[in-house]
């Protein structure tokens, strides 16, 4: 449509121009205009994200710093919250329900604490992913940036939170008799794979949560069910003895259990490879690659639609 066919009584330019009679799309093409807010192709999108890497990092740090800014103890809560969590689970599952059978006591406590910390990493990534877009609509509607920056940034924030918890974890593990060794280095690849997996999950949840904010209410139940099924506070093979073998296999191959077991194996001296399912590293890598790539594409497909109310 040319500019001389406006609605309303006044047309702006009665003078004929060579552009008269062109449709809007033709006019746009002629002068090299592009559709505003259109979704870029994946390579261009990745490049845009890379250009925003400083924003992603700065945003995650700022969120982390602001998290407990209203609490009197401030950043101390970063350490205290996961510790209290582990303590509660120890009271109920370790002492009252005796869920630690099949594991010696000096293995069970670090086993439980590792499980809680590592699972919390995935759980909080999911939860902050759900709100990544829907909780930051103001930012999305005000400024231009590739929207995937937000869920990625939130996953990164959880990684930083976990690194703080890891220091506590090292202390707990050493108190119960494990000593630093070369196998501790395995937590680096294990955490990187889990971070990739969590980022993919956060991207998926961000798109789902942007469309259906109700997920923020539902997801705590899903993640809690997932936690109980993943052997955070009990050893899956020991607990399922006598049941059909495939149940234990399915539970052990679920990503949360895989990443927990890898970290436990790396840190706890009394937790040997006999507790790990076969091909565990391949499974860990597979989950990370599939979920990250799938989540990224899934999120990108709705890129131009985030921000609608």
């Amino acid at each position: 449509m040319s500019e001389s066919t406006h609605d309303g009584p006044v047309a702006v330019s009665p003078r004929p121009s060579p552009d008269d009679g062109l449709t809007a799309a033709e006019l746009a093409a002629k002068y090299g205009l592009s559709v505003s807010g259109a979704r870029p192709a994946i390579p261009a999108y990745v490049r845009q994200l890379w250009n925003r890497r400083h924003f992603i990092v700065a945003f995650s740090r700022a969120k982390l710093a602001a998290q407990y800014s209203q609490a009197k103890l401030g950043q101390l809560w970063q350490v205290v919250t996961p510790l209290l969590n582990a303590l509660v689970y120890y009271l109920i599952f370790g002492l009252i329900l005796n869920a630690g059978r099949g594991l010696p006591k000096d293995v069970y406590i670090p086993f439980l604490v590792t499980g809680v910390f590592v699972f919390t990493f995935t759980q909080t990534s999911v939860m902050s992913g759900v709100r990544a877009i829907s909780g930051n609509l103001g930012l999305v509607r005000a400024l231009h940036f590739p929207r995937a920056s937000l869920p990625i940034s939130f996953a990164l924030q959880q990684l930083q939170q976990l690194l703080v918890s890891m220091v506590v974890l090292f202390v707990v593990v050493m108190v119960f008799g494990s000593r630093p060794s070369l196998s501790w280095l395995l937590i680096v690849p294990a955490l990187l794979l889990q971070f990739a997996f969590n980022t993919g999950l956060a991207l998926i949840m961000a798109r789902a949560g942007a469309h259906t904010p109700d997920l923020a209410q539902l997801m705590p139940f899903v993640t809690r069910t997932w936690m109980y099924a993943s052997g955070v506070m009990f050893s899956i093979p020991a607990m399922l003895e006598g049941r059909p073998g495939w149940i234990a296999d399915v539970l052990q191959w679920n990503p949360a259990a895989v990443y927990m077991d890898l970290i436990r194996f790396a840190l706890i001296d009394g937790y040997g490879s006999e507790n790990l399912p076969p091909h565990v590293w391949a499974v860990a890598l597979g989950w990370a690659v599939v979920i990250l790539a799938g989540g990224f594409v899934y999120f990108w497909k709705a890129e131009e639609r985030y921000g609608r109310g």
């Binding site: 809007a24 559709v35 505003s36 807010g37 400024l143 921000g307």
Partner: peptide, 14 residues
């Protein structure tokens, strides 16, 4: 500005 997605129609910008 491309911040709100269009239901129908398009905006072209330089």
């Amino acid at each position: 500005a491309g911040l709100l997605p269009a239901e129908r129609g398009k905006v072209y910008t330089n």
